[in-house]
Nucleic acid binder design. Structure first.
Lengths: 142, 142
DNA sequence: CTATAACTGGATATCTTTATCCGTTTATAG
DNA sequence: CTATAAACGGATAAAGATATCCAGTTATAG
């Protein structure tokens, strides 16, 4: 369903989203998110380029989420590393339908669309295993 | 989203489902469904093994759908060649949640689940570009 | 019976994804 | 200023998905 790379990116973002004030090195993230260290470096780089996280070099450096976790959606993360692609034209190239997709690809694109919507409305914050939970509103159950 | 192989399998099934009484050779299906001929042979083989179509050898042979197109779901076709796999345990291996998935993987599995359901309730017949349309019930619009 | 059409299956090639390695650059600590 | 910690980036390797090739088997037409 999702590429391995997207999985890794999401795990790393979730890790970064818990305690966003703290900067973490790729190594720390690697063990926290269980991602092969050298590969994670590449993935984090993609997230940096997408503007979702910032990377600081040098001693004491590391990565940090940019902006509040409540504003970072799963879709943004996925699209940063491995974009969901909607089906825009029928791969069979049947001109018969004009701009419309054939029934098969209409259905398949609908499926992509609903995933896209689900991902667009899910924030990284809501996926955090240990939400910043300070008010009476927090009733996380086991 | 879907592997290329699954795409090919679906196209071939849709082709076979229109006029299911007629047997087609791999070559015919190849040009009809726009699938590389030698690769299609492999894919058709998977569908045969899954019991969705039958292959007859020798001169005059070819492939035919088994059973009515209205009973063949997209899910069956997809699972025959490239199974959707539900997430059963958290890849992070956090024992903390017991049998439950962590919020991230619960959400991701929900997405797979909804795709699975959508595919399970969509028949190949409903995807046919030229449905066997004989009654007044057929009001296919452009 | 023979030639031919067609599926079957193994071997191989190519491409993409995933993963690893290592040198370079950057910044901080001391 | 020097040593060190860390991100960055290029080259390479391993694995899997996709695609091609071709010999083997099976069945039918004539």
């Amino acid at each position: 369903m999702l590429s391995q790379t997207a999985e890794y990116a999401l795990r790393a973002m979730v890790a970064l989203a818990t305690r966003p004030e703290r900067s973490r090195t790729a190594q720390e993230l690697s063990s926290e998110a269980k991602v092969p260290p050298d590969y994670l470096a590449k993935v984090l780089n993609l997230l940096v380029r997408a503007g979702l996280i910032s990377g600081r070099r040098g001693r004491g450096g590391g990565f940090q989420a940019i902006g509040p976790a409540a504003k970072i959606t799963v879709l943004k993360v996925v699209n940063a590393v491995d974009p969901l692609k909607r089906i825009k034209s029928c791969p069979l190239g049947l001109e018969a339908h004009g701009e419309n997709l054939c029934p098969l690809h209409r259905k398949l694109d609908d499926a992509v669309k609903s995933i896209e919507e689900a991902f667009a409305t899910t924030t990284i914050e809501s996926l955090s295993a240990t939400p910043t939970c300070e008010g009476a509103a927090c009733h996380a159950t086991a």
